[in-house]
Simulated assay, not measured.
Amino acid sequence: MAYATLAELKGRLDWELDEDELRIAASALEDASELAASYGRDWPEATVPRLVKTLVLKSASRYMRNPNGYTQSRAGDETLAWSEAHGRDAGSVYFTREEIRLLAELGGRKPTLASAPVSAWGTKAGRRRVGLIPVDYVGGDRFPMFRDEVSPW
């Protein structure tokens, strides 16, 4: 399952691919498509958004141009360097942070804020007066917390 074709990827590269590179390119397209599905959602191939296809092609062509993830190369003294910017993704098919954000939005995964009800340990809702919590001292009475029946605070 690839969201883009090998012919579309070849159109983005400026050299003719040999047999081994064609095999690697097909794998890169599949890997990029799997990543796109995991960051966004699993789109049917027939209805994949154009932007998802573009991002998959961008990621696969980035990998094909630099499969080892080099950031610097020198022929004179055989110097090679890798960047820590992509960490474990260097030398593999990856999406940038912005691309991941776009995929998440396209897949309907927007960051949201949620709340959860919280109660004191050992209390049960509806059994005690609203907003009173038990305190642990001799002759202890219930301590008002948050609100009571009359006022909001």
Rank of each mutant, 00 (worst) to 15 (best):
A2T: 13
A2M: 02
A2Q: 11
Y3H: 04
A4Y: 14
A4T: 12
T5Y: 15
L6P: 04
A7S: 13
A7N: 12
E8K: 06
L9W: 07
K10P: 09
R12G: 14
L13H: 12
L13V: 07
E16P: 11
L17F: 03
L17A: 01
L17C: 02
D18V: 00
D18R: 04
D20I: 06
D20E: 15
D20Y: 09
E21V: 00
L22T: 08
R23Q: 13
I24Y: 11
I24P: 05
I24G: 03
A25H: 13
A26D: 11
A26W: 00
S27Q: 11
L29N: 08
L29G: 04
E30M: 02
D31K: 11
A32E: 07
A32P: 12
S33Y: 08
S33R: 06
E34G: 09
L35Q: 14
L35W: 11
A36P: 11
A36T: 05
A36F: 06
A37G: 13
Y39H: 15
Y39T: 02
R41Q: 12
D42K: 12
W43G: 02
P44D: 08
P44R: 05
P44Q: 04
E45M: 05
E45S: 09
T47P: 00
V48A: 14
V52A: 04
L55E: 08
L57P: 10
L57S: 08
K58W: 02
S59H: 08
R62N: 12
R62Q: 09
R65M: 10
Q72C: 01
A75S: 15
G76R: 14
D77M: 08
D77K: 13
T79W: 15
L80S: 12
A81E: 15
A81C: 06
W82G: 01
W82D: 03
S83F: 13
E84T: 14
E84Q: 14
A85S: 15
A85G: 13
H86T: 04
H86R: 05
H86E: 06
G87I: 04
G87S: 11
R88H: 09
R88F: 06
D89M: 03
A90I: 11
A90C: 13
Y94T: 01
F95V: 00
T96V: 02
T96A: 07
R97P: 03
E99T: 02
I100V: 07
R101N: 09
R101I: 02
R101C: 01
L102V: 09
E105W: 00
E105F: 00
L106Y: 10
G108P: 06
R109P: 00
P111H: 05
T112P: 03
T112I: 07
T112S: 12
A114E: 11
A114C: 02
A114N: 07
S115L: 00
S115M: 01
P117W: 12
A120W: 12
G122F: 03
K124G: 00
A125I: 10
G126A: 02
G126N: 10
R127P: 05
R128F: 11
R128M: 04
G131S: 05
L132M: 13
L132A: 07
L132S: 11
L132N: 10
I133A: 07
P134G: 06
V135F: 03
V135G: 07
D136M: 10
Y137K: 05
Y137I: 01
V138F: 14
G140E: 00
D141N: 06
D141G: 06
R142D: 08
P144L: 05
D148G: 05
D148M: 02
E149T: 04
V150A: 03
P152H: 00
W153T: 03
W153E: 10
